[in-house]
Amino acid sequence: MQYFAEDFDPQEYDSLTDLSGNENVTLMCHNETKKLIVRKIISGINKELYKQLVHVRHKNLVQVMGLEETTSNCYTYEEYINGETLAEILAKGPIQEEKAVHWIRQLCEAVRLLHEQSPSIIHRDIKPDNIMLSSDGVIKLIDFDASKEFTPNKQRDTQLVGTPNYAAPEQYGFASSDPRTDVYAMGILFHELITGYKPNEINFSYKGRYGKIIQKCIELDPKKRYQSVQELERQLGVHEVTGLIEHIPGFRTGTWWKKEIALGAYIIIAVFMTASVCSEWNLHGNIVKSLAVLGCWVILFVPPYILITNFLRLREKLPLLRSKFIIVKVFGAVLYLLLWLLLFSSTTSIERRL
């Protein structure tokens, strides 16, 4: 039995080597394009689910390109991901909250798409080993060996699968797995990303900004959890908006006197800029010229402010400045300085002509 995507032909690929010493996973290379893929030996139990996954494409899901069953084995052909598992990353220590939220939101997109299939696909084994961060910074959910198609009104799972400490109680025969099962595992993962530990491994409870979200995810009773990944996504979005003020320089440390000084400085700058615009309006009565003056002040202050204070860590996201090499960073800083001066010069020139 063979079931392949329309744009995939395994005959065009040559086997290279077992991946990471695992004889069940083979790295393969396209004859012409040199594109790499992975061939895996899987249990035949989930072959119908893998056939469904051939038609599911998303940047945060490993791409399944085909399924092939022989007399001896059942194989899947999947996208090769150049990167690290979250387990390998966590071995180096916990992740900053901002980055952890970004990764969880990417994971939400992948899991939501699985749940939106007909029938819904429940992953049932969300854990650091089954999530990869590609070399270009994209989260990828992999390994569907424990997954199942959701059956409404089913009393309990017939197969007890999952990984201890990540599997929800219903995966141990107490009820049937459903989308809330994956929400539970995502809560455990979220906690581990931020603290470096799973909730049951430590004697203290995480009390940070996302503590209530995590606690709701990992409720033992599925009815008390978020009822869908969409609910979890919405709550994460609300926290990102309300938490924006915590990223503003002067407010990031939480120290009251620094907040007072920062607030005073921001008020003075705002008053100064407003006074300049109003003065220009009183002199010339030209709204366009007044807005041009405001634009000059914004261009003068905002770009240096963002780069110097690293607001929202934008400095770490800009091309060249995020490089590991000092010479590239210096070149990037000089280039951005020249662009800033050119932009400011152009704006002031336009303002004078008005």
Rank of each mutant, 00 (worst) to 15 (best):
E231N: 04
T163N: 02
S72F: 09
F144R: 03
K59Y: 06
K40W: 05
L263W: 02
T309P: 03
I327D: 14
L339M: 14
E316A: 15
Q227Y: 01
R180L: 02
I188R: 01
K47Q: 10
E246N: 13
A168W: 01
K212R: 10
P249Q: 08
K140R: 07
Q11W: 04
V111A: 12
A5L: 02
P128I: 05
L160V: 13
P179E: 12
H102A: 14
T347H: 06
Q235R: 12
S346R: 13
S120H: 00
I188Y: 01
R124W: 02
D14Q: 11
K289N: 02
K148M: 12
G196A: 06
E192Q: 11
L354P: 03
L294A: 12
F8C: 05
K99L: 14
I213H: 01
K99W: 08
S290A: 09
Q52M: 15
N60V: 13
L341D: 03
R313I: 13
G83Q: 03
T33F: 04
Y336F: 05
E170T: 09
I104V: 15
P119N: 00
N31L: 14
S290P: 06
A275P: 03
T348C: 10
K59C: 10
V56H: 01
I37T: 09
V183C: 03
S20P: 09
R180W: 04
K329M: 06
K99I: 15
V101G: 07
V56I: 15
L300A: 14
S279R: 11
G211F: 00
F331M: 12
V64W: 04
D178F: 05
T70A: 08
L114G: 06
L232K: 01
K259S: 10
L86P: 02
G196N: 03
Q230W: 05
F4T: 00
F174K: 14
S349D: 08
L193I: 13
I202N: 04
F144N: 06
L220D: 12
N165D: 14
C29Q: 15
L61G: 07
E192G: 07
E109F: 04
Q11H: 08
V298L: 14
G254M: 07
N46Q: 11
F4N: 06
L113A: 13
N24G: 11
R234L: 12
E109Q: 11
L36K: 06
H123T: 10
R112N: 12
